[in-house]
Write a protein that binds this DNA or RNA. Structure first.
Lengths: 335, 335
DNA sequence: TCGCTTTATGTAATCGCTGACATCATTATA
DNA sequence: TATAATGATGTCAGCGATTACATAAAGCGA
């Protein structure tokens, strides 16, 4: 491998001079600078990152931790983050946890090792008390999850108002018997500001109460994530004596599952059942019933969290920012 | 940051002994080994990767270069690769090129720097003559692209037979006037074994010839990639005097665009127009017309290319392997 | 022309880790 | 019991880059 000394030798200068040229430091004559560039080019020299890191000069890299990139929500989020990170002259290291706690901790170890200067957590696997301990090794920011900690920057969508407005939308369409799906266990839905599912749920119930509508507990579906979950939910629904006339899903996946089975179960959408998705995934508008859905501000989330984190890394900002972005209803045919 | 010396000191042994414990070398007494583990745990020690790399002990990392992870084809491919790479105790570094040549070269520089031990290219941006030069810095494998070079392992789908069979399928449904979409320029379609588009096209024309069908050059659509491209194509088609009765798209995206506009243009699918996709993307079956499509063996491709590359890194195999995997027709409603 | 600042360049220590080599201690073999 | 082999442990050089420090040359005002 080509080293800085080889470049120095070929250019007829010292390694220091080469280092100065590489890092664009002053006090190098035009003549030598040119020679160095020529030598670097001739040898195809690329500085070894590992050696630089050893000198403590940071990694110029930020880690982005997500559950899985095959989930479009996260791949679009990464996309937004990476474009911003690029713009700020950092590199992005994508780390998938596949939902495993251990993988999240391994990801955080990258901070200890100085492999990354900062980390964006786009999902939380471990309890915050555990993650907290890693703060001393580098900057951490959280995106799309709640963290009740002053020292951590956080960028989230305003789930409470998003769902409140979504519910209002259904009510404005004359729907009164609204079912509700969530990815969590039911037990965890009651405490505002703890996680986005509970915020959503409270937005939902708040809108209901504002219109004096009651919620039938039989219409609460928990642990719903996938298309298959959505299909299972619709099957259950279709066999109920008391049927809802609308359903709010926790994601476009679940909504996709529901609309995919409607025809075969002889359920008319949206007349018999309005279906409201969340996310506005790219293909939501091309489904058998184009989804009415609550769009998440993915692009801005990614952009802002990247900016805030890098600001913090550079030490240029004050207390951790908490940024809340608006969701937006996208009316299509399913509701 | 916690260093190996601090661990050594706390454990009351030399750094070498700690190093031996970390790397599971022999000749360390049980007693000292336990002490070292205890000290490592107590201090929360994680070896610094950069320092290890400097000693030439490889990075235990392989780079996966893709155009964009928001493309489900690639995110699923990465998924398959990463799971295999994990299993073989390597790490995965995902690198997006966003279709830019320079980004591909930067990715290849990771080899020079010893940031990765090998690279899987899942798309080719630069001419092969340029990429070739990087072989001396580390192992390179190519996935889903043609490379006419003995020294490079390559894993691809059998596009020729896939498209031949897909075309046969349409013919078996009574279709005789078949249009064709490709992502490339028309000029590049004629040479077998050069890229997968040309293989596909030749598979298509081969099937046509076998049934004495001719191909109307007006029905060739080039540079078709996105949903919007698909929509544009259908609009063009609908205004032709001579209309095809089937269309083979280069991807499920293009197929999605076509079926999404069919209803509003008053075109019945598949009666008026059969639409054949390629890829079998996860949502293909949930579209307004569930797509009949040619499934790519993504999982096996990812798995095999990872295995072959890591085999090569370890130096355990003979000449570069060329692996060709079968595509499979998934009949649904669009054709 | 003299001292003083500024610019240009080089020497060598250092970062954390591994591994070749050296040194004892212990056990096996003759 | 003497000697060789093996096991346990330590010392220290070196990987490739940065950077504190040293030094020489050039610029500059009086």
């Amino acid at each position: 491998m080509v080293t800085i000394s080889e470049v120095a030798q070929l250019a007829g200068v010292s390694v220091t001079t080469v280092s100065r040229v590489i890092n664009d430091y002053p006090h190098v004559s035009k003549a030598k600078k040119d020679k160095v560039f020529w030598a670097m080019d001739k040898l195809g020299y690329v500085p070894m990152q590992a050696a630089r890191q050893m000198r403590g000069s940071g990694s110029q890299t930020i880690g982005v931790v997500v559950p899985e990139i095959i989930n479009p929500f996260f791949s679009y989020l990464i996309n937004a983050i990476e474009r911003t990170v690029d713009k700020l002259h950092y590199k992005t290291l994508i780390i998938q946890t596949f939902g495993r706690k251990q993988n999240e901790l391994t990801a955080l170890d990258y901070l200890k090792r100085h492999q990354v200067d900062g980390i964006i957590l786009c999902a939380l696997e471990n309890d915050w008390d555990i993650i907290k301990g890693y703060q001393k090794y580098g900057q951490i920011a959280v995106c799309n999850e709640y963290v009740d900690e002053d020292t951590i920057p956080m960028v989230i969508g305003d789930q409470f108002n998003g769902l409140r407005q979504g519910t209002e939308y259904l009510i404005s369409k004359g729907k009164t018997k609204i079912a509700y799906c969530t990815g969590r266990d039911s037990l965890l839905l009651q405490q505002r500001g703890k996680n986005f599912d509970s915020d959503r749920y409270l937005g939902f119930t708040t809108a209901l109460q504002a219109h004096d509508l009651s919620f039938n507990p039989a219409w609460l579906f928990t642990n719903a994530h996938s298309i298959e979950d959505g299909q299972a939910i619709l099957k259950q629904l279709s066999q109920m004596a008391q049927k809802p006339d609308a359903i709010i899903t926790g994601s476009d996946e679940v909504a996709t599952g529901i609309v995919s089975l409607a025809k075969s179960l002889n359920i008319q959408i949206p007349q018999d059942l309005s279906v409201l998705g969340v996310d506005d995934q790219p293909l939501a508008k091309f489904l058998s019933y184009p989804l009415t859905t609550i769009r998440q501000p993915i692009t801005q989330m990614g952009q802002q969290v990247a900016e805030v984190l890098i600001d913090n890394i550079k030490g240029t900002t004050e207390p951790a920012q908490k940024i809340k972005l608006d969701l937006q209803i996208v009316p299509r045919e399913s509701a």
